[in-house]
Design a protein around this nucleic acid. Structure first.
Lengths: 387, 387
DNA sequence: CTATTTACTCAGATCGTTTGACTTAATCGC
DNA sequence: GCGATTAAGTCAAACGATCTGAGTAAATAG
């Protein structure tokens, strides 16, 4: 569980830190990177020359700004690497190729309801191979795949509108790995979308937020300290099955009054023909507000990001319903952001998030927290070897 | 935000890892520690000799077990360090001295309703000084303090049964630091209790759980990967204010139907005179079950730990109500633990948790996650310096 | 045109971890 | 019983990533 560190661990870690800092805040001169990550310019220089050599970062010539050497800036080289993202749903497959900047360069899709796992992985293998062929082979990093959650919970995974039939007991990670032949990773769709938002959306400013994913069902994901909180088995975030309405609508999960029976695209599609969109919004508003209060009181996020498959227009209407929220611990004086905001990543969030999983896993810091200087018992003598 | 690592950071980190491994799994021989944390025996030897020198660990002579050198084991020296915990409530103060094993050695209390901050910190300063006097001065590590949450939320902190009057705008951390003159830390009571459970209770086996704290109000805390998840402002865990009953009882927080209006010692005290304990249990059961389903679906923990100030007898009765739980993603086949279990730490949980904050902050690993070997792009060349 | 400032680089020093040989203390097998 | 084997631990030298301090390049200030 707990692991020690040595130079062999430290170097890759620092490399990831440097690259992630450049990715998130670049273009940056070396001194500035060094200042941020707490290492010397020399070290950053060594690391960045390696990253440059490998083509992951590009050097932008320095522009004179006052006295002194005009510092060249480092930025991500978008074409330094590519990754594939696959989104598997009960309606079919979507796949995309992204570059290091998270831009979608190519896209493929297979439409077929309730694909079997065998068929799906055959398609996935083929799609990924085609996409890899479109980019420099040695620059392909890996693939990520997203699916509606939860995984491996028979009583929940295989019923309801987000059901994947015939996928019972399939070792998805292993199958993906074998199908693509590159490093492969799997994530629940809402977590993948949250990951995208963290990397390419609001995550540029926010390190702690809750991502509410309004898809066919309703999912969510906490980003805490910049990290996706996945739960013990990677299934955290099934906010759609929070029982907010006692004795409410029966849900395929077996309970009654689950939130996603009211707040989800499935609910929208089911209700609007009956009562119209305005009626649905009115009916859903109190539940949305309750959901927000629940999230705020449980997670204390900086903000809640409203994302998912739902079209922007609809999400804007939902956002409007949150103008007048009930009290919660989010009602603090010194808020930097509204309590609810819109996602900045488009409908490709899941795809890009899934693909960037591979990039993150291969590159990014699973960070060592800096030991705080809080009464260090080893302050001085710690440096001397004990005889 | 992201920090690099070097030898200066690495050594203290490894020291913490070694100590934490010994604390949690000791007594252990050096080889075994090395195996667990992924460093060499030599390094562990160097570090442990330092820890031994400083009196934090004790050496237990090796007992012959089969061939080879009989390995001496290392274990925590309980008297290697002491810390103070303070629990501040609207009813008064409780303070305690614990040793490195988390045992409560001394205890003090001041009973006085709605103490002002000035009075409280005067008392706290005095109590801590007395306790420090009872242990070797140089072995005193620091103090931790717990309070009912949430902090700094005017609209919620200062109303209701857990209210602290006259504490508005008080910089608690700073005041505590000044009052005790040692490293000082502050935490919400439920998080402190969860921390205690992590260190000295179920945390010995579980790294991912949700701690439900049934006190005057109702709080909770996620332990994820062995770490307390505190939220953006340290207030995560206000599960008591999840609105589970639409149009339910009005709550001092301003909303209606908050969970803690039904499930808390305050609710128990208010309702049992009217309908008796059995009546209360019956009335509360569906809400408790809903709360559990909510937690499970949002956090996907290994288990939920039922703790808090509520007496064991009452918690046992509540536990009995969870024998037949609704479906959730926790209903998996391969569960290692029941969905709900009782806390193993007694009523001192908050006190011990608060005190051990100081120990943890000074010693324990805020861990660097080991970079997984997933398609390392720098696999070989990473070791060679680039010219 | 010189002095100053700033970013960067080179080469050597530093220091925690690793490596490999050695020591110690137990059991196994003849 | 006694040498061979096994296992944990220690010593001293090697390793290697980062740091340190001197040196270089390119701008501005005066």
């Amino acid at each position: 569980m707990l692991k020690g560190t040595n130079q062999e661990v430290g170097r890759p870690h620092n490399r990831r830190i440097v690259l992630e800092t450049i990715r998130q805040h670049g273009p940056l001169p070396r001194v500035e990177i060094a200042r941020r990550i707490g290492l010397t310019t020399q070290t950053v220089s060594t690391i960045t020359s390696e990253l440059h050599e490998r083509g992951f970062v590009a050097l932008r010539p320095g522009v004179p700004k006052g006295r002194g050497f005009p510092a060249p800036s480092l930025e991500i080289n978008p074409d330094g690497g590519y990754a594939c993202g696959v989104y598997v749903t009960p309606r079919g497959l979507e796949a995309g190729l992204i570059n290091l900047s998270g831009k979608v360069l190519a896209r493929k899709a297979v439409s077929a309801p309730q694909m079997s796992a065998d068929t799906a992985f055959a398609h996935i293998g083929a799609m990924v191979r085609e996409m890899v062929a479109d980019c420099p082979r040695e620059r392909f990093i890996g693939a990520g795949m997203a699916m509606p959650g939860p995984f491996d919970i028979e009583s929940m995974s295989f019923v309801g509108p987000t059901t994947m039939e015939g996928w019972r007991g399939v070792d998805v990670g292993d199958r993906l790995q074998k199908a693509v032949g590159y490093p492969a990773f799997v994530e629940v769709d809402s977590a993948a979308a949250a990951h995208c938002e963290r990397l390419y959306g609001v995550g540029e400013e926010l390190f702690n937020f809750y991502y509410l994913y309004m898809g066919v069902g309703l999912g969510g994901c906490v980003i805490y300290d910049g990290q996706v909180i996945r739960g013990a088995w990677g299934n955290a975030g099934e906010i759609g099955h929070v029982p907010l309405v006692p004795d409410g609508d029966p849900c395929p999960c077996g309970n009654h009054g689950c939130l996603e029976r009211y707040l989800s695209l499935e609910a929208y599609a089911r209700r609007t023909p009956v009562i119209g969109e305005a009626g649905w919004l009115e009916e859903t508003a109190p539940l949305l507000r309750s959901a927000i209060v629940t999230i705020e009181n449980l997670f204390d996020p900086e903000t809640i990001v409203l994302g998912g498959l739902a079209p922007v227009e609809l999400r804007l209407k939902l956002l409007a319903l949150t103008a007048d929220l009930p009290n919660s611990l989010a009602a603090r004086q010194d808020r930097q952001h509204p309590r609810v905001i819109l996602s900045r990543c488009g409908t490709d969030a899941v795809l890009r998030g899934a693909a960037s999983l591979a990039i993150t896993q291969v590159f990014s810091p699973r960070l060592p927290a800096p030991p705080r200087a809080a009464g260090d018992l080893f302050a001085k003598a710690g440096r001397a070897r004990i005889e």
